[in-house]
Amino acid sequence: MKRYLIVLSLCLLFIVGVSFAVTNFILPKETPVAMYVATSSENKKIQQKLKELGYYYGNIDGILGNQSVSAIKKFQRDYGLSVDGIVGSKTLTALGLNTGSSGNYSVTEIQKKLKNLGYYTGSVDGIFGSKSITAVRNFQRDYGLTVDGIVGKNTAKALGLNGSSQSSSDLYLLAKCVYAEARGEPYVGQVAVAAVILNRVKSPEFPNTIAGVIYQPYAFTAVIDGQINLEPDETAYNAARDAMNGWDPTYGCLFYYNPATATSSWIYSRQTVVTIGDHVFAL
């Protein structure tokens, strides 16, 4: 009896071990694909298009069965897309069916505007899925525009979108670094961290762009341990925005450290300016 227990537990251990190994190392890491949740009429369009291009020979029934999926895969292979059989936004674009992001307008912006107006209820994720399309259509109907779900010139105008809009990548980066480095700190401490980054950009000793400063090797622990990739919260954004508008509670500091965790003794040689929360700021 005891033996069986041992064998059984070994078996269990084996299964756990194998599954752990398989999920972690052997299977390729799946990158999340922007799923395009399509209605059957949209599926029909996909099938139609694939048929026109000579990839699909089945019936146009709006059901993406085995035949459709292998057609999609074939198409993806030929067009250099990742072959997953899923019609994501890239595949959709390649098929010429991507109705939303006409390149000039960022999907996030469109979603934000629609959300503000109460048409879009999904999350602002930059994926132009069926929810977005429905929102655009509803908007177009109410505003007396051609109801096609496409954000063209007129719809964009009605939405108040400016074609030249550019994303504030600097603000995003700054907010990310603030969040990763100082999210537990008082607000002004977060502004101060953002200000230090901006002071470094202006200082000759450091790289001359925000990205350069943040990603400089060994400059920020949050970059080393990967916390930089966390999504910043509103407070971090506010702090970053304040710093970009000129707020600098440290008046020119280039360094900060947490005396409880600082490892470099060199840092103590800098002239201390102020302590905010857990961070000591120095020139």
Partner: peptide
């Protein structure tokens, strides 16, 4: 310089 894995205090002067 800013791409190389050097502790920033070692390259301040060079960068500057």
């Amino acid at each position: 310089i800013s791409l190389l894995p050097i502790n920033s205090d070692m390259v301040f002067e060079t960068s500057k």
